[in-house]
């Protein structure tokens, strides 16, 4: 495990998870905060609801990323949740 490839193989998944947690988690939270605008409530209330829930989603995403068995699953889980949110956000942007 001294070769460069070996190091990448051992550190790569961890780096991937950290990126998924920091940036993937934020992106998911941000996406959710926009997707909320599609709900049947007034825009100011929807904006605030999105902001209030975003931090819970972010925290949950980070926990998810480090709880699952592999970095690949971590990313897949984020994408599965992101897909419907993206559709919803698309409709209001």
């Amino acid at each position: 495990m001294t070769s460069v490839a070996g190091r990448v193989r051992s550190v790569g998944p961890l780096v991937s998870r950290i990126a998924a947690a920091l940036f993937g988690g934020y992106a998911l939270a941000a996406l959710a905060s926009v997707a909320v605008l599609a709900l049947p409530m007034s825009t100011p209330q929807a904006v605030l609801t999105g902001q209030l829930t975003s931090f819970v989603i972010y925290a949950a995403a980070v926990i998810w990323v480090f709880a699952v068995r592999s970095a690949l699953r971590a990313w897949a889980g984020l994408l599965v949740v992101a897909a419907p949110l993206l559709l919803s956000a698309w409709s209001v942007w």
Binding site: T43, P44, V47, L48, G50, L52
Partner: peptide, 26 residues
């Protein structure tokens, strides 16, 4: 986090609040 949430999560506001009247309402 809630005290500064408009700074940390401005995206919903950017998407939904477009006019000066909207902004005033918020």
């Amino acid at each position: 986090l809630v005290t500064l949430m408009a700074l940390y999560m401005p995206w919903g506001q950017q998407a939904g609040i477009k006019t000066a009247a909207d902004r005033q309402q918020l």
